[in-house]
Amino acid sequence: MKKYDYIIIGAGFFGAIAAYELTRKGYHCLVIEKRNHIGGNCYTKNIEGINVHQYGAHIFHTNDKEIWDYVNQFATFNRFTNSPVANYKGELYNLPFNMNTFYQLWKVKTPQEAKAKIEEQSAEYKNIIPRNLEEQALKLAGKDIYTKLIKEYTEKQWGTDCKNLPAFIIKRLPFRFTFDNNYFNDKYQGIPVGGYTRIFDKLLENIEVRLETDYFADKDYFDSLAENTIYTGPVDLFYNYCFGKLNYRSLRFENELLETDNFQGNAVINYTSHDQKYTRIIEHKHFEFGIQPKTYITKEYPQDWNDALEPYYPVNDEENNAIYLQYKHLAEAEANVIFGGRLAEYKYYDMHQVIGSALARMKKIEEKRK
């Protein structure tokens, strides 16, 4: 007899929800986590009374009422609405592209005027077949929006000229012809009061969790402990890179506690020119309408990924997707291993998508038992 029914690798959303749901159904689970905390990239740490998003801004949003109700079991969510601002060489623009943005760019005041301006600026690219991201963006938006709000920001994100990026990265651009700065269209949106870590504390309550534990440092031993494995780490690492390494973009964070109660007046400001090497500044207290006497900011710098860095964004180009498909075929053939989450599926997930995926996979386990 094995000691556990399931060993779960990773204490982010997929792993924590899997552990919670399986334990609730009577399975005995062990969660192991390489970091010194639970919560994965959603981990928040309280600093000077401010809940700091340690791995970049995480704003919960979904149209799925079942998922919204599910997460509200574990936290009370506030009414935070994501309304980022773009700073281009000191000029400020509202995001996403909406009537406020178009007025700031061109002083147009009606949707008809805005549409006409976009059509005028994109007219010369109307009949081209875009060969790269630059041509795709120019065809969709014209030169002003591309130059001030897309080009240099995208180049910082991906570490290369927009002419070198595939057109499919920008399949469409959301133009909103209303004076609405809400970045998401989802019905439900907010930040958990007290930070995301509280959710994970409740999900993993009364479940054995071993932190600072590397599964691959003693894989045979950990596999011997359980009948089944749920794996949320990099899929290529699981198979010892037998088909080659998958590529990612990573991030570097520069944090600062400031002796002021308000640094920038908004939770997120994007810096869309090369004048700054960072892509955005996050002021964490504004996620929870904080009134603390100090503030805490994070500058976010995209960078090339290597083994020493955290993988954040899968580079889902043709080459990497082809490599992933080979790993996916191996993963699908595993009888007692479930692969789930952003790294194991080599896919960029929003939080609600990870939660939905985890719940669906755990439901299948229960259906098989019946």
Rank of each mutant, 00 (worst) to 15 (best):
I47L: 14
P302C: 00
T178C: 07
P314E: 01
R172F: 11
N270P: 08
G12P: 07
T295W: 14
T213E: 00
P302W: 01
E152P: 04
D186W: 06
D214W: 04
Q276Y: 12
K65P: 02
I207N: 04
Q276G: 01
T260N: 11
Y43N: 06
A267L: 15
K143N: 14
N51Y: 14
Y153N: 10
G26F: 13
E283P: 08
Y248L: 03
K107R: 15
I281R: 11
A226T: 01
W106A: 07
Y70S: 04
V235Y: 09
Y88K: 07
K368W: 07
N336Y: 08
F175Y: 15
E300C: 04
E91Q: 10
L92T: 09
V235C: 05
L246N: 10
R198T: 13
K370S: 07
E256D: 12
W305G: 08
L204C: 04
I118E: 00
K299G: 11
Y231A: 05
E124H: 11
L211F: 09
T197P: 01
I291F: 14
T295Y: 12
N240T: 15
E254F: 10
N321T: 14
I169S: 00
D275P: 06
M362A: 03
W305P: 08
I338W: 02
E259P: 02
F184D: 09
G265S: 05
E134M: 15
M1V: 13
Y70H: 02
E21G: 02
P302M: 01
N132A: 10
E212G: 02
V85M: 15
Q136I: 02
E367Q: 08
L95Y: 05
P302N: 02
H53I: 14
L22I: 01
W106H: 12
F238Q: 07
Y153V: 09
E134Q: 14
C29W: 01
K115Y: 06
I118F: 04
I17F: 07
E66I: 03
F74V: 05
T101F: 01
L258S: 06
E259N: 15
E227S: 10
A116H: 04
D201F: 03
P293C: 12
N182C: 12
F238M: 03
N270L: 14
E152G: 08
L237S: 09
I365L: 08
I282R: 10
F263K: 12
K370A: 13
I282P: 06
E208K: 09
D218V: 04
P293F: 08
H58Y: 11
N316S: 14
A116I: 00
Y241V: 04
N255I: 07
G142N: 02
R342W: 01
V354L: 13
Y55D: 06
Q264C: 09
I38R: 09
E135Q: 15
A331M: 14
W158V: 02
G15W: 00
L133P: 02
I8D: 05
K202V: 06
